[in-house]
Structures are given as structure tokens and as C-alpha cells.
Nucleic acid binder design. Structure first.
Lengths: 237, 237
DNA sequence: GCGGAAAGTTAGGATATACTAAATTATTTT
DNA sequence: AAAATAATTTAGTATATCCTAACTTTCCGC
């Protein structure tokens, strides 16, 4: 009868598609906003019409607040379920990379399937085995068992002003070819870089990374998140 | 157009239930016989009526030879798919046990889900990491990547004649409580034991294992497979 | 504040998997 | 070999997820 009990039951019996919806909605509405049907559809590569039905079912389970024609947002229970899946995904990515020597451009796809099949116990054992990492191989923070996660919003490299330096904190993990290219350029989490120039009309961005100078397109730069450094020769605070 | 090509495609796109059917049919008909609808249903804990439909679909995909009212048997392609899943299952069980410290009574359930989600690459990396084991934690032989597997049929402990000694080669892996009990009795793969007595009317079987003497019911004994040893004081060959 | 574009939903259908109840085929017993 | 029993299949449903096409609602520009 208790709501908490019901929620626990719900979270335990989520289907793989349901977990994918919750992850997508979390990713879209991080921190605040409602997720639009179209955004969800695009992220999951399905037709918008399909989203309406699923979203209604998830709302019936108490995972989403849904108002027809006005998008959805996660309930507390939905948020917990999303973070649980996210933790699985990121722990698995980290484990594959650290314990099994998986190349970093391939961990995402594998984790995408395993996250729906692995038990909490397995995920916890994996995390313990590799020393409870706080970030996955692409720099994304790993939620704790309790569902706490750092939700700092970082600047993308595409937005970093010319002359500014920063540390790469995270790169998007979905496109293997892109990841291989970023690795080739040595644009990896933890690396320091400086924006040297930005050509107008969405033109290339010129960077220095280590002792290399290189330039990349804005589409690529948008997938690289940066923690800006207090700039030499600027005010702080 | 080529049949080989088609088969490869089929094997790659099997659903989890389809893989479970193939595993069940392989387990029933090992070596020869046809699997009966009822047996499949019982093993998968579903209604017999549900089996008919699925079996037809699998036959359409070329995985089964099916004749209405006369059971099914695996085709070469179906056999390959079954052994692929079996390899996954057993490698995963071994890996969980050896690399992650999973207790042996819990690896089965976890592997049962992961086997449908893990890629060949992951399974191969797991196998490599723990030294290409030939047997899983319960003593079941692990098929090779190429689908070769030892299909020796062992005697069950329930059938082992009084006075005979043998080595435990394998125990059934599905019931965690049973596995814990067997471990408690020290009836584990590799252990040597001798049948001391067998009470009539399906009565208990008395064994010596190491320096212990113990007796177990025939239902339990049926789940323990034995490689008989050339008996001291008997003819050989 | 109207009218069209964009976004979202409903209607109707497909597929995969399972169920129960009823019908059919096979097997066993006498 | 007929009757009884067991095994199997078909018929008809249900659920979850997806689709396309058609309809409805919202939003934005003038």
C-alpha cells in the first residue's frame, strides 16, 4: 500500500525501453526544464507518435509528470530510476575500460545493452573492483548508489571565448568515430587547452593543446565540455 | 542470397526468448533426440501452448526442424546459435566467479540475463582475462568460439552403483539453495567420493566424501554428475 | 488576434511473446 | 481396435513497443 514500496517495485521491473526513456528525459531536462516529445523521439531515434504512448504509461507508473501537449518531467521516483540506470551505464563503461581493456570508443555501445541486464550487486562489485571511480572514461560523473550526482553545467568548447584556457572535463560518448578522432587530437578529459581563434560564420576554432596547435569545427567543439581556468591576465571572482 | 550469410544474420538478431528456447532445446536433445513441446515448456516455465507458436517462428528462421505433433530438433544453424549462447553463459559465470568474487550459487541468475546482452567481443575478453577456462564454476564445459564442446554424458550420482568411486565433474547450476547445500556437504566439482550404500524405494544414498560420511536423497544425487573411477578390485574395460 | 507552421496526439495496424480454453492428434491400455 | 489418456496445436486475447497517416493543439509572426 505504501507509495515508497510501490515505487521500489516499479523501479525493479522497468523494461529496457522504459529505462532508455527515463535516461533520455533526464539528459534533456537536466536540472529543470520539461522534455519535449520531439526531443525525446529524436534522442531515442523513434517516431514522435511512439513517444506519446510510452510517456503515458510511464506517467501511470508515477515516473513522469505529464500534461498532454506540454512535455514531461521526471518525478522524484523517475529521477531516481534514471540515475540508477545512469550509474549502471557509467560504472560499466569504466569497468570495461579499466578491467577489460576495452577501447574507449567502444564502451558506450556495450554498456548501453548491459545496463539493462546487470544487477545492482554486479554494478557495485564492478565499481568496488576498480576503486569506486567518480567519473567514467569520457569524464561523466558517476551517480552514487544513493542517487547523488554532480550536475554542474560546463561550458562547451564551442562557447569558450577566444583567449581562454580550460581543462577538458568531458566529451560526448555516443559516436565512436568522433571519440577516435578526439583521441587522435589528444582532446581528452583532463587535458588543458586554450582557444586561440575562432573564425566567423561558424568557422573552425583554433586551439592549442599541449604543444600542438590545431583547429576543429564547431560541431565537434560542441561535444567537448570545459572547465574554464582563471585566465592569466584576467580578474577572478 | 547465400544461406550462410542468412544464418549469420539470424544468429545476430536473436531475441532473448529465442536464445532461451534454443538453449532449452539443446539441453533436452543433447546429442540426438527431438525435444518435446512439453519438455521445452516445462524447462522455460511457460505454457505448452506458447511453445508451438515460438517453435514455428524459429523453424521459419531455419533454426529448428519442426514437424507438427512430433517435437523439434536443432538444425546446424540452431545448434551453433545455442552453443554460442551457452558459451556466453558459461564464460560469464566463470568470469563473475573468478574476477568479481561472485558466490557460485548466484552466478547463474546473473549470467542468465547478461548472456543476451554481452557481445562476442566482451565474452572473449572475459575469457582471455581469466585464462580461457574450459569449465564453468559448476563443472560444465565451455564451448569454444568455434562451437566445439565436449558432450560426454556422465553418470549421475543417483545411478552410480554401490561400492563405486568417482569424481564429481559437474553439478546442476540452477538452484542457488541446492548449490549452497552441496557446497556445505563439500560435493563440488573435482571432489572424489564413493557410494557406500543405497536404501531401497528411492531411499537415501550414503557416500563418503573425503573423510566424511553423509547421506543424501536421490533427487539431489540426480543433480550431481560423476566420472566413475576404475574401481579398486574390479575388472577394467 | 489570426493563420500557418510546428509540435503533439490519436487512430489503426504490425510484431513478438505470452496466456487460457477448446479442439485435435498421438499413445497407451485393455 | 476402441476407449481413455496424454500431448500438442489452434483460436482468440492481452501486453508492450513500435510504425504511418490523419487530426488537434500550440506557438509565432505580422
Amino acid at each position: 500500500m505504501s507509495a515508497a514500496r510501490e515505487e521500489a517495485d516499479v523501479a525493479d521491473s522497468l523494461t529496457a525501453p522504459a529505462e532508455d526513456y527515463l535516461k533520455a528525459i533526464y539528459a534533456i531536462g537536466r536540472g529543470s526544464g520539461a522534455a519535449a516529445t520531439n526531443e525525446i523521439a529524436q534522442r531515442l531515434a523513434i517516431a514522435p507518435a511512439s513517444v506519446s504512448g510510452m510517456v503515458r504509461r510511464l506517467a501511470d507508473q508515477g515516473l513522469l509528470a505529464y500534461e498532454r501537449y506540454h512535455g514531461v518531467r521526471l518525478t522524484e521516483s523517475g529521477r531516481r530510476a534514471a540515475l540508477r540506470t545512469l550509474r549502471r551505464h557509467r560504472v560499466i563503461e569504466s569497468y570495461l575500460s579499466q578491467a577489460l581493456g576495452y577501447p574507449w570508443d567502444r564502451v558506450h555501445d556495450e554498456a548501453e545493452r548491459l545496463e539493462h541486464a546487470a544487477s545492482d550487486e554486479l554494478v557495485d562489485r564492478m565499481a568496488a573492483t576498480i576503486g569506486e571511480p567518480e567519473f567514467d572514461p569520457h569524464g561523466a560523473p558517476i551517480p552514487t548508489r544513493e542517487g547523488a550526482v554532480d550536475e554542474t553545467e560546463y561550458t562547451s568548447l564551442a562557447q569558450l571565448p577566444v583567449g581562454t584556457s580550460g581543462v577538458v572535463v568531458r566529451v560526448s560518448d555516443e559516436d565512436p568515430a568522433m571519440l577516435r578522432y578526439l583521441a587522435e587530437l589528444s582532446i581528452l578529459p583532463g587535458k588543458k587547452l586554450t582557444v586561440k581563434a575562432r573564425a566567423p560564420y561558424d568557422g573552425p576554432i583554433t586551439l592549442s593543446v599541449g604543444r600542438q596547435e590545431l583547429s576543429i569545427g564547431p560541431a565537434l567543439a560542441a561535444n567537448v565540455l570545459i572547465a574554464p581556468l582563471a585566465d592569466s591576465g584576467r580578474r577572478r571572482g
